[in-house]
Nucleic acid binder design. Structure first.
Lengths: 209, 209, 209, 209
DNA sequence: GATGAATGAGACTTCATTCAT
DNA sequence: GATGAATGAAGTCTCATTCAT
């Protein structure tokens, strides 16, 4: 039996989380309802309250799921990049690549991005989501540090945080302007700063060269 | 009679927008309902559908109102600052002061900040809000440029945009961590970058000195 | 227009109260639900929450309605009795007649009686019902005093209260024994006591004779 | 092992009855649910339907349990009273003491009282509860007769029943008026009647003295 | 122009009971 | 024998919107 590893109950619970997470991506928080989740998961309506204390509880799980997916996507991008970038513009590219994803994003990619910042902002009014986010943030920070500070352990973590903030700010700006590509915006914003800061971050040797 | 200029209908419409904007600040989008708005404005329930095509329409107006309030607050802070900052850390202080507001913020200040980023993010799924935001953004950018590029018209607008992005990114991060002060976070992130970029932005003479 | 006296809204509200009151009679508190009331009144489900703050509110109104009906029935029995009873057993008969109703009671009569004591007991756990009951009790006491102390204003009200308590106690006992007629039980219990007390209550002259 | 006498199944069954009886005291019939009972008894949810045909069945058992507790409390009060009361007011005191309990009642005492009359009234609509009540009533009557007619076997049982009815009626009245003490009310109501009836009931000799 | 009245749709949740194990 | 899992039915209540006046 292939399901031996995960008992049926847990599988169903996860199906609901998955369904809720998908709805979250597609339609935001307002799209997550007992009914919509149950229908999407092809499970009875009452299963949503059977497996979760409340809808807020289910939503928190879905948010975490999407955060984890987001993180996994980021990590898989880290894995795909074998060689560290040499020049400064490559550093911008790399960070953008990791945080935002590939160019010519699919609709899903865009939704994933929107959902990430919806999550950040939703934390402002929800203690439960703040808990979720705290856990996620630690892992994301670690993944990014792994990828970008790998070759230079002395580089300021603080500098990385600034670059991340620039990207976050760029993306948030781009969300409000449909026609603007968040990658381009973020890349443009990063480049100048990186020209000055990044060498010290990732390529101390490059400066000496 | 001061109300002679604005006919009753318009005054009522504005009262509803005002009420909805307040609710938006206090409780986010979910708090804005026909009934809650009408009650808050002390007007009949049906007036909310009489003066607005739909709840979404009313919400869009309320979002714009809050954006305008936010902008006005920013402008009034610009007016309060007589002397331009001298050093680089002052530039960070100034930008933070303008974008985030005074230290030891009131609950209202915090709500205003949350609401701003809720607005940004909500634009991602609402074309109507994007329209609103486009109009607002132009004015905010102008106000910030006025204040910060006043003494150096040649300075890159692009650089200002980067600094703004850093603050936006910092604030978005801080929303998810209740205990973290967005001002401190933003100031810290700005300072290093400004050490390098800002002199060219606001104080070209300072470098020569 | 025959409805000029009571506007439509009020008529509907009353129809709901009436429906709820009937359900209360027929099935007790558990039978009063939004759906059952709306169906019975042949009105939309949402009307129950439109006209009443909550189901408890509606129930309180229905309880009051039944109390008022009960009182009206009692008063009409007072009206039917032209001559005061002469002898002691007549006093028992009279009180029983007034408080319990005619012999060979219809099913409705029995339900009315049950509902009365359900009301008393429900007050123990519901402050809202206590308020209702306070109002009703005053009127019932007055009606009974009117009927029984009419000819002897000096008679102790306290004595009447004791007789009422005996009837109440008798009825409560009879509720638990289907086969026992509350009238018989109450009458039997009253007679002995009345032999001694009642003359002083209603027929002081009789003693002198 | 004290539990050897009662097999596990029976012990669990009783634990459920106990839990349901407690809930009945604390919150009335509405508080008794499969889930609340199981949780309170710290037993699996399904045990409630495993050991009982239905919730109504479980409730009937709980009602009986509370009736038995009530009876036991009454009997223990009988046991505490060594000397019979001398005067008539003592008879009122005694009956009140036995039926209602000690002055300055605890919250639990009050709940016990409420629950007793909830039981009486609930019988009106439930044949199952009437069966329960029939059994209980016989025992209560016997206990009261034991205590009050002990010294005078010839005294009318009917008279006792009247006194009991007065107390029942007084308590039912007091349930609807939170601020009124059922003991005071019952005592007041009894005293006059007892002045006349009670001597013949409990102390024929006392009169001669 | 304005609004009180109204309601269909759907929200979240509870719960008695069944059933496979 | 026991129980974890499950769910259909129904509960209370909210709400955007319509419409007659």
């Amino acid at each position: 039996m292939s399901s031996a590893a995960t008992p049926k109950g847990e599988r169903r619970r996860q199906a609901l989380v998955e369904a809720a997470a998908d709805l979250l991506l597609e339609g935001g928080f307002d799209a997550v309802r007992h009914r919509s989740v149950a229908t999407r998961a092809d499970l009875p309506l009452a299963s949503t309250t059977y497996y979760f204390e409340s809808l807020d509880d289910l939503i928190a799980c879905a948010v975490e799921r999407n955060g984890t997916r987001d993180l996994a996507a980021m990590r898989s991008r880290v894995g795909e990049i074998v060689h560290l970038p040499r020049g400064s513009s490559d550093t911008a590219d790399l960070l953008v690549e990791l945080m935002i994803g590939p160019p010519e994003p699919s609709e899903t990619d865009r939704e994933r991005l929107i959902t990430r910042y919806e999550r950040f902002v939703a934390c402002a009014r929800s203690a439960a989501l703040r808990d979720v986010q705290r856990r996620l943030k630690a892992q994301v920070d670690e993944a990014l540090a792994d990828a970008l500070l790998r070759s230079d352990r002395d580089a300021h973590e603080g500098t990385l945080r600034k670059l991340v903030a620039i990207v976050d700010g760029a993306v948030v700006s781009s969300l409000a302007e449909h026609e603007m590509d968040p990658r381009e915006l973020a890349r443009g914003m990063l480049s100048d700063v990186i020209d000055i800061l990044a060498p010290r971050v990732t390529h101390p040797a490059a400066e000496g060269a």
